[in-house]
Design a protein around this nucleic acid. Structure first.
Lengths: 139, 139
DNA sequence: CCGGAGATTAGACAAAGTCCAGATTGCCTA
DNA sequence: TAGGCAATCTGGACTTTGTCTAATCTCCGG
């Protein structure tokens, strides 16, 4: 089910299908993330959304990203101690993080096998498994 | 090679063996981490070190933790977007993170197998593989 | 046209971490 | 013992990321 295009119009549908009221700001933010298909920090989203003229406040960017997260539209990636990245790809995958450049890319989860994880204590459920491969330029 | 005891005296040797000049503050910080064998944030280290009377400044705590990291005495664990944890256990292991409580515990790496990771681009080397299992209380 | 719920806003605030210039420490040599 | 030097430590100002709040705006149904 290849998504054809990340136009602003299609964003409205995407939002609605995730039970999110598609307002102007939300469409812009979704567009910033999905049209790029990249991992963006809140700051970067802010910058992209407000390139032409200031349109969207900081509070709204943060609120909206949290809302998207809640509704399962994006994933949170915690690799950099100083900021959170938001990931428009919610299909199962892992991450490759280039420490020096801060570049973050995906590793399809279907090619990777993880086994031998311990049983969880009673009443606990797995919320997610994050696998991060940290790499750097050879010295 | 079971380490017998995390007395302050033994800390001095541990530091020296990692090529770190064992000053009073460094010994206290190492002691805070190793005697507890727990994951502590910089804040928590500060609190422990300064319980009786203020002995060590914030700057020193941060500098020292970074130094320890550099010298391979501790590991950095990035699971919580708001703060970094420092882990006195440097043997290969993964982490289990209880999202609600913030509790962080170890998973021995020997029981876990990871396969199918992609080849790295040329000139890149792996710095580390972080596997984090995020769990929460069942709702 | 009116009312109200939901959405957005500016800006004050909080917490983690960095930076710097000056003070302190410990050690070496004379 | 004194002096000097390098390493270390310090308080405090500063930066950055993110949160909070109270006021305003928008839009829709009646």
């Amino acid at each position: 089910m290849a998504r054809m295009d990340y136009t602003r119009d299609n964003m409205a549908g995407l939002l609605r299908s995730h039970d999110i009221n598609p307002t102007h700001q939300r469409i812009e933010i979704a567009h910033a993330l999905f049209s790029r298909q990249e991992h963006l920090s809140a700051d970067q989203v802010m910058a992209f959304v407000n390139t032409r003229h200031s349109e969207t406040s900081k509070a709204t960017v943060y609120n909206t990203l949290k809302l998207f997260l809640d509704k399962g539209l994006v994933r949170e990636v915690i690799v950099d101690p100083s900021k959170v990245f938001y990931d428009p790809n919610t299909s199962p995958h892992h991450h490759l993080y280039e420490v020096d450049s801060g570049k973050l890319s995906d590793i399809d989860a279907r090619s990777v096998q993880i086994s031998g994880l311990p049983q969880l204590p009673d009443g606990m459920v797995t919320e997610g498994i994050d696998l991060i491969v940290r790499v750097r330029r050879q010295r």
